Computed example of a mutant assay.
Amino acid sequence: MSVTQQYLLDSYRAAQLGERTPPAPGVNDWQVVREVRDYGRFNAVVHERPAHGRARAALGRLLHGLKGGGARSPRPLP
């Protein structure tokens, strides 16, 4: 049974019993994404880690590590 079929069945049952219909599938998806993001930021603060830019920093460390140099030394001035 697909999500849409389940939603229609639940809506029909709610109408027969005089109850509120359930929310349509996908209505609250972005709210869930925001709550997961906020929980991750809160958890980072509680554990004393940076709350912003962690994914970008990790990706940067990974990419610089693959290039095989780590931190580059500056070129000497002429």
Rank of each mutant, 00 (worst) to 15 (best):
M1S: 07
S2I: 01
S2C: 01
Q5V: 09
Q5Y: 03
Q5E: 13
Q6F: 07
Y7Q: 02
Y7G: 01
L8R: 11
D10W: 09
D10E: 11
D10G: 03
S11M: 09
Y12N: 07
A15S: 11
A15N: 03
L17R: 15
G18F: 06
G18L: 06
E19C: 14
T21I: 10
T21M: 12
P22S: 12
P23D: 15
P23S: 14
P23N: 14
A24V: 14
P25N: 12
P25Q: 13
G26P: 07
V27Y: 03
V27E: 05
D29A: 11
D29N: 05
W30T: 01
V32F: 04
V32A: 09
V33D: 10
V33N: 10
V33H: 15
V36G: 04
V36T: 14
V36S: 12
D38E: 10
D38F: 02
F42E: 06
F42N: 04
F42P: 00
N43T: 09
A44H: 08
A44R: 15
V45C: 06
V46L: 11
H47D: 14
E48L: 14
R49V: 03
P50E: 10
P50L: 04
A51S: 10
A51T: 10
G53R: 09
G53K: 12
R54N: 10
A55F: 11
R56H: 07
R56C: 07
R56N: 05
A57Q: 13
A57E: 11
A58V: 00
A58N: 04
A58I: 00
L59K: 02
L59P: 01
G60K: 04
G60T: 04
L63P: 01
H64K: 00
H64Y: 00
H64V: 00
G65K: 13
G65E: 13
L66Q: 11
K67H: 04
K67L: 06
G69F: 02
G70E: 01
A71P: 00
S73L: 01
P74H: 08
P74E: 02
P74I: 00
R75T: 09
P76H: 11
P76G: 09
L77M: 06
L77V: 04
